[in-house]
Computed example of a mutant assay.
Amino acid sequence: MEVTEISVYSVDLPIAEGSYDWSGGNSYEAFEATVVRLRTDEGVTGWGEVATLGSSYLPAYPRGARAGIEELAGTVLGSDPTQPAVLADRLDRRLGGHPYAKSGIDVACWDLTGKVADEPVADLLGGRFGDGAPLYRAISKGTPAEMAERVAYYRDEGYQNFQLKVGEDPVVDAERIRAARAELDPEHLLDADCNTGLSQHEAVRLVREIRDVDVYVEQPCPTYEECRAVRQKCDHPFVLDEVMDGVGPIVRGYNEDAMDAVNLKIAKVGGLTRARAIRDLCTELGLSMIIEDSWGSEIATSAIAHLAHSTPPEAVLATTDFHDYNAVTTADGAPETSGGVMAAPSGDGLGIEPHEDVLGDPVATYS
């Protein structure tokens, strides 16, 4: 089997709540997703998706994903998509870095491999643990009262875990965290995600302000070194995200006791092939994970669900259902959520069926 055609789509994902706001003044009313379809000489089709959080958050942007796919198309065409690890190695040799540009291709290979094997991707990744993985709900940045109100709303919807978007000012952030925690019971998990928004001295002030609050602290500063310095002054469980983009940083962070948990984003590391390796390493090291992606619709959320559901429960801190944040539906067969848990689809491959009328015509085709 070999890939004979690559189709690339661009689709806007409007935010259902109106906007998504986080540190650094980042605010978007919609995110642009790049969807990849691989066709083979045997008529089997695979789908993948990557959606960056605009262009100023991570070193990734929507047009960059599509430019990367154009650069990689010659390597993908003629390759066997049912050997995703082999193709991932070839893509790395063809294009250094730019993992997000490779992610949609890699996920499409896993979707296609599952269809050929008549198995869901979760089974190929190791099998399903229990009924699913625990969800978190991201709470967009607002006033302390607004964020507490949204926490209470989603708590009543059945969510057990919450990620607050903070990282603006240590005093205001502390008020946000306290207001949100007041709406939760002891069994609820609260994660204060700074998204690199604080300087080292500001982050130290924040962790001192909230020393008595039951909360996780996630990636307060831009660099690993700054975060590690804050970690040494912090009594809270510590999560690293943006700087954890491969096996090397995971090993360094573990050896230097820089974190208790890792935020594993599929696109940030290049797709499910690399994410599986990092997932397995973290599991062996006893590091918990938030398993997700940078953003996405039903296609990306399905990949998240398959990876999270096939991870031992003790290693999963939380996962997320990003398709529920959008005001548009790109595919049928999205992961099912109930009681704050998300289960991987049971169909072959990713288990989704894209709405090609929503995706529109391809913006590029390679054959």
Rank of each mutant, 00 (worst) to 15 (best):
P170K: 15
I278A: 01
P62Y: 15
L91F: 11
E168G: 09
G25I: 07
D235F: 14
D21H: 14
L91T: 09
E17C: 08
E356W: 10
Q219V: 09
P345I: 12
L240R: 10
W47K: 09
G253C: 09
G340M: 02
E202F: 09
R211P: 07
V230H: 04
G197W: 06
G197E: 15
L13F: 15
A145G: 10
V230T: 09
D245P: 09
A152W: 12
N26Y: 15
G158K: 08
P354T: 11
N161W: 08
V230K: 05
A122Y: 06
I210S: 07
V207Y: 12
R208F: 10
P170R: 13
L91C: 12
T319A: 00
I352C: 09
V151S: 10
Y57G: 01
C109D: 06
W295D: 00
G333A: 04
I352M: 10
S294N: 11
D118G: 15
R276H: 04
D332V: 05
L164T: 05
A303I: 02
V3P: 09
E149C: 11
D173I: 05
Y216N: 14
L124D: 15
V251F: 01
L53I: 12
E242P: 10
A331E: 03
Y9S: 14
T45W: 11
D357R: 08
T283A: 14
D214M: 08
D293A: 10
A152M: 08
E157T: 05
T337H: 03
E183S: 12
P345Y: 14
V3A: 07
S199G: 11
T223Y: 14
G339C: 01
I266W: 00
R211S: 05
S297P: 07
